[in-house]
Design a protein around this nucleic acid. Structure first.
Lengths: 211, 211
DNA sequence: GTCTATAGGTAGATAGAC
DNA sequence: GTCTATCTACCTATAGAC
């Protein structure tokens, strides 16, 4: 009974701390973040933050790990069986929706990369490489089957990632570019449509010549 | 004679400080940067940094201002007269080349945006908006003339910016995605080609119906 | 589990000799 | 213009009462 209660408090507080930490780390980076600010944002006293995490490093690592896990669950597949146009559209839409709903996580990741990706574990980096390699194989199979034009699969993936990530990470710029207003769901839909109209349209062969 | 000598020393030291500051700010953000680190990276004692700049804020603002000036000079125009495909190719190539040669400036800008763009002056933001609006007008004129397909011009510009910026700001990710090696000029050429093969190819009308 | 107090270190910024 | 010494404030992390 009391054990369960304690466990619930523990889980809730850890989540609060990581939510707050993600936001502050994303904005100010690792070195610029003060534990006091995380504590204030989480609504807990500073000493309680240290009760759950041994150091600033620990909090940072936990926030990064949680973020990568979330991405994985949300964006698992470009499946081989699917039609390329449908698969790309699904992927872009899912990623833009995720960027819209979780901009903070995305920005934390961006900050970690700007920092030089020193805190990403070798396991996490290998995982990113594996996912990329799998998708490259899928795209190259589509090219071999004549379903899409011949492009560099790796650069294509980078481009899709870049286009979708930008909407989460560079919101002040996006706002200015769209006319100085807050971003709504409709803007992310318009972004998805624009990506579909250009990148995806350019991928479909004009003179289809299947092998 | 001595005046000139002093002026040269002054100019050289200010440049050294701003170079060092750009690098450290880009990596650690404003709050994470220590003046001591800027001093060490510039090869000058900390007190000399304070001789040239009154505060950390001053150094940061100067670095941002220099960066925007540099971008402006390097990336002035998508000109209206030009053929769309050629204009886009020129723009993408110029921006990728700039990203390759000045990744640090690009990352500093990214960090400032992640921070919430609080240090960008209203003048600087207005300038960015003006440049965007001008290019939007150009693209919409091309659409009206039937030279490219009907797309949202603002999202198209964001997409081009995103794709090119990514190569400067997210180099660790790009490296992993391309197979864990250092980036060379050839990679930026391949990126330009991929963008041309997809985005630009998708823009050219299939059934041209000029108005 | 929660919170106050504080140790020990380092930050931004300045004073003033050379 | 250059540099050492230093002030004040704040940071991470911990000790220990409740």
């Amino acid at each position: 009974m009391e054990k369960l209660q304690e466990e619930r408090i523990r889980t809730r507080n850890i989540r609060r701390i990581l939510d707050a930490a993600t936001e502050v780390f994303a904005r100010k980076g690792f070195d610029g973040t003060r534990i006091t600010e995380i504590a204030e944002a989480s609504g807990l006293p500073k000493a309680n933050v240290y009760y759950y995490f041994g150091s600033k490093d620990d909090i940072y690592r936990a926030a990064i790990a949680r973020l990568i896990q979330g991405w994985d669950e949300a964006l698992e597949e470009i499946a081989l069986e699917k039609d390329p146009a449908e698969a790309f559209t699904r992927y872009v839409t899912a990623k833009l929706r995720f960027s819209h709903q979780h901009p903070t996580e995305s920005r934390l990741f961006a900050n970690e990369i700007l920092r030089g990706a020193e805190f990403l574990t070798e396991q996490e980096r290998k995982h990113i490489r594996d996912v990329t390699n799998y998708r490259v194989a899928v795209i190259e199979a589509w090219i071999a089957a004549g379903k899409i034009v011949r492009v560099d699969a790796r650069h294509l993936l980078i481009m899709l990632w870049a286009a979708t990530q930008f909407y989460a990470d560079f919101q002040p710029v996006v706002r200015d570019a769209l006319g100085n207003r807050n971003l709504e769901s409709a803007d992310f839909d318009a972004a998805a449509r624009c990506i579909a109209d250009t990148i995806l349209a350019g991928l479909i062969p004009r003179d289809p010549e299947p092998i």
